[in-house]
Amino acid sequence: MSRVYFRSPTRTAELRGSERAWLGSLVNDIAIGVLDLRDLSRVERLRQLIHPDHYMAKRPTEGHGWLNDWASIYATAFAVGWDRSAPLIQYHGKQIDQFSLALNTAALLGSDQIKLAARLHGACEIHTWVDGPNRAWLADILQAGLDGGVYRRGIHYAAEPDHGRPEPLWVPQGWEDVVALLRERDDEPVVTSYSVTDSFPNSGVGDWMPPWPDAVPRDWNALNEQQKRERGERQDAWYDLDAGERWRISMGGLRASSDGLELKPDNWHTFRFTHELTILDLVAHDWEERLQRALIDETPAEG
Score class of each variant (00 low, 15 high):
Y157K: 13
R135L: 05
H54N: 15
E44S: 13
I32K: 11
P60A: 13
A107K: 09
L15P: 02
W247I: 04
D162L: 14
R248A: 15
I50Q: 15
N68K: 12
Q98D: 10
A117K: 00
R229K: 12
S257N: 03
R255F: 08
W175M: 08
N104E: 06
G204T: 08
Y239I: 00
R45L: 15
Y157Q: 13
D240Q: 15
I249S: 05
R11L: 12
E188I: 05
P60S: 12
V171I: 14
L101E: 02
Y157G: 06
R3P: 00
V190N: 01
N202V: 01
A144T: 11
G65R: 07
M56K: 05
D214S: 11
P168S: 09
L101N: 04
R183M: 05
I96S: 10
A13C: 07
E276K: 12
K94L: 09
M251G: 01
P300R: 00
R231F: 03
R47F: 09
E125S: 14
D281R: 02
W170Y: 15
K58G: 15
M1C: 06
A77Q: 10
L146H: 02
A159F: 04
G122C: 02
Y91N: 06
G17L: 02
Q90D: 11
H64F: 13
A71N: 01
I73M: 10
A75L: 05
P87K: 07
L142F: 13
L241H: 06
S199Y: 07
S111P: 08
D39R: 10
V171E: 07
Q226S: 14
Y74V: 14
C124S: 15
W170A: 13
V216T: 10
N68M: 10
H127R: 01
G253K: 08
W70F: 15
L23T: 00
P9C: 09
T10R: 13
R119A: 08
A31Q: 01
M251H: 00
Q95K: 11
W82E: 14
W220Q: 07
N134C: 11
A158W: 09
F99N: 13
L26I: 13
R293Q: 15
I50P: 06
G33Q: 09
A123E: 05
E276F: 03
R246K: 10
